[in-house]
Design a protein around this nucleic acid. Sequence first.
DNA 1: AGACTAAATGTAAGCGCTTTCATTTATAGC
DNA 2: GCTATAAATGAAAGCGCTTACATTTAGTCT
Lengths: 335, 335
Amino acid sequence: MPTIYEVSKLAGVSLATVSRVMNNTSPVRESTRKKVEAAMAELGYRPNSIARSLASNRSDSIGILVSELHGPFYGAMISSIEAEFRTAGKHVIIAAGHSEEATERDGIEFLLSRNCDALILHVEAVSDEYLVQLKAKEIPFVLINRQVPALQPQCISLNNKLGGYLATQLLLRQGHRQLGYISGPLWKTDAQDRYRGHQLALQEAGLDWDPKRLFEGDYHEDGGSAGIRYFLQQGIPLTALICANDEMASGAMTEAREQGLFIPQQLSIIGFDNVMLSHYTYPKLSTIDYPIAAMGQMAARWVLKEVYQQKQPELQLVFEPRLIERDSCVVQPQP
Amino acid sequence: MPTIYEVSKLAGVSLATVSRVMNNTSPVRESTRKKVEAAMAELGYRPNSIARSLASNRSDSIGILVSELHGPFYGAMISSIEAEFRTAGKHVIIAAGHSEEATERDGIEFLLSRNCDALILHVEAVSDEYLVQLKAKEIPFVLINRQVPALQPQCISLNNKLGGYLATQLLLRQGHRQLGYISGPLWKTDAQDRYRGHQLALQEAGLDWDPKRLFEGDYHEDGGSAGIRYFLQQGIPLTALICANDEMASGAMTEAREQGLFIPQQLSIIGFDNVMLSHYTYPKLSTIDYPIAAMGQMAARWVLKEVYQQKQPELQLVFEPRLIERDSCVVQPQP
DNA sequence: AGACTAAATGTAAGCGCTTTCATTTATAGC
DNA sequence: GCTATAAATGAAAGCGCTTACATTTAGTCT
């Protein structure tokens, strides 16, 4: 593997000039640039990114921490982030936090130790104070799907409350009055916000809010099926069900069917996130779109702008969810 | 951020000794080790991985190239690879190849330029010769889901033929005689192999192989629905359908239902891969399990052993698929 | 043409670590 | 107690690049 030194010798210029040609960091006469480029081509020179990083104190790498690497949700997010950085010549280092505080801290430590220029964090378990402290350290970072008041300008989030509101509103519009709600773990802020949106929609419609009609799930399929069993066992009549994510909606759908209910005729179900699986269910799941790819891209642009000083169009920090109507919610037949 | 130099000063030893303490690269007296560790703790020292890489000529990073970052299949693979390396203190750099030759080469170039110690490649479009040439370069790599004869010892693959065989065998055992097959793009070797397994099973059962009963799909949902339309239009009677992956099976299922067929009563469908979506379909999809997580882990171990000289249990290069019976295939009722 | 300024290029000092080789210190043998 | 040997430590030379600063070359003006 040839080094910059060999290139400079072959081209008959100094190291510095070769470096300048590579980085466009100061003007070089056209003729010398040509010579250098020819030498690079002849040797098949490829700059050593490690050496470059050490000298320049940039690693051109961005750390990403997500809860899970598999699963449709994070896949879409990582995918859009990688694409954005790739065209910018940066690369992405990935770690998983598994929604546990210790693992998340660990992951951040790990990324820090790899000398990332910036971090993009989708963390849930770590405390706000921890993040504020992290800010005090040298490293710039963006938060996805989390609002920390002190860190406002670096939080990219979804209006989860609006999402819960939209989902509920659809069902109300369809004439449903007996609603159930399966939430995510309520210590997670997004789960709380979605539920608040639900409550707001109920309230606006002048409906009572009944705590029995809330079941706290786990954002996994099991949560959905457990929710269905809960409502049935408690004898709570339901014509429509809101699930705080698509996986729980899927679990609920399966369980409801096993319990003999026809979906959507006897029970309308709406999910949240619009991950890929919502295409695959039968009936196809109505849901709330979480524009995670766009948000990932925005996070990448944030970094490009704030850390690498690239000019970027106006950054958008808050995203709006959108209602996706498919087949799992229908108008409540008049009794 | 403190450097090794400051640690050495505080501990009253030389740089070399601190380095030795960190890397266990040669024995250090217990008392000095204590001193050094105390100094590191006091300063909150964290080694600079960039500098370390430059000096040692290792980057402790492994490049991974997959076709897509999103989607359940690659997610599972990346997840298991990351987990394995993470515990080894290595990290993973990811690029997407999008099943296109130019992009794949590009991705490899990109990873090479990041000074990866090794690559794990899930490539489809790039030629065998290219890979053989790559081997001639300095960089070690493993291939996942690909067999290159000259690169045998670094290929981790699934016995795809057996998978096609198993799927077909199930349907035959269930009494089906009118089978259809929706393959992946036949320029992909895995698509070919799966189909060969299908042919073999037919042959063993003494059944004719009819080229009209093959539809070449694209491994996406559309391929599945197009396949159903094809069989219907051609008036080819079918009681069971083998799809070369789960996505096409899902597409086929949806389309068949829209065409008025009851699944599985009128048409049994089996998929391939056992990706997450196969849980979500209705009826739940019977399929062939592709142990992608295990294979990813094995690829990581290959690297740990061959590149980092870590001792590892015997490496397994060929994996066997397994039949997963769910609800989408039933015994063919006697006519 | 000479003086002055701007543009282009070169020089060399690091960046923070690893690692070879030399040196010092402890251990053992007699 | 003194040498022979092994163990522990230190000194210093890079790894391949960037970049501040110095120097040279070209360009402009009078």
